[in-house]
């Protein structure tokens, strides 16, 4: 690893101290859209959310209406995208993964969230339980727009935002860790913004 090298003639922008931003992030007030393919548009009548896995005693499935009937919470969180923007104090509404996972019996240690559009992301179970992750369907008081992952997306604010997969449709509970879409394309397996885990090897 080379020493940082001063770039001749580069002054950088006037910097204010942003104590609440992870390293290398800048604040934005927009909500940029980033995804690898086009935005899927799933009709609510066809939407469902499932939990599957080899160690599962009984797989679980909720229709949109059943999902709406689950206990809901509002979440206020700072989000950090690996492309360097951060947005503070975003407000979401949805169902905690604690609530969903309490309804199945399993022996897994990892979860793979899968989505419309072929995306997936992997997380250890202990990173999503205990009020750390949600399936959200509302942003700033309005239904979540398709370009931001609607009808529902995962929200894991303490990880880079690619782990908050858009258009989430279910969870696979697994005994072993399997890299998801971005994780198998060179992005970091854990993606902790405070440790600046952007790419493999960081």
């Amino acid at each position: 690893m080379s020493q940082p090298m001063v770039s001749r003639g580069f002054r950088g922008r006037q910097r204010s101290v942003e104590a609440n931003l992870p390293p290398g992030q800048y604040l934005t007030n927009d909500f940029p859209v980033l995804s690898a393919g086009p935005t899927p548009r799933t009709q609510l009548a066809k939407w469902d959310f499932t939990i599957v896995g080899t160690t599962l005693v009984q797989p679980k499935r909720w229709t949109w209406d059943e999902f709406q009937a689950l206990p809901r919470v509002t979440i206020q969180a700072d989000i950090h995208c690996v492309t360097r923007w951060s947005k503070l104090g975003t407000r979401w509404e949805g169902v905690a993964l604690d609530t969903l996972l309490a309804r199945v019996q399993h022996q897994a240690r990892f979860v793979i969230a899968y989505c419309d559009g072929g995306y997936s992301t992997n997380l250890p179970l202990n990173e999503v339980l205990g009020g750390k992750a949600w399936v959200v369907d509302s942003y700033e008081g309005a239904p979540l727009a398709p370009e931001h992952g609607g009808p529902a997306r995962l929200l894991v604010p303490h990880r880079y935002f690619w782990k908050s997969t858009k258009w989430v449709r279910g969870l696979e509970l697994s005994v072993d860790d399997r890299p998801g879409f971005w994780e198998s394309l060179g992005y970091h397996n854990d993606g902790d913004p405070w440790r600046e885990q952007r790419y493999q090897g960081d």
């Binding site: 927009d30 940029p32 995804s35 393919g37 086009p38 935005t39 923007w85 370009e147």
Partner: peptide, 28 residues
């Protein structure tokens, strides 16, 4: 980003398969 979103939506509308459309968004 706005151009990419617009063109990808058009491509889907024309009947192209989602899995054949790849996008890269440069900026907010």
């Amino acid at each position: 980003t706005p151009l990419v979103e617009a063109v990808a939506t058009m491509a889907l509308h024309l009947g192209h398969a989602q899995g054949r459309i790849k996008t890269e968004r440069f900026g907010p």
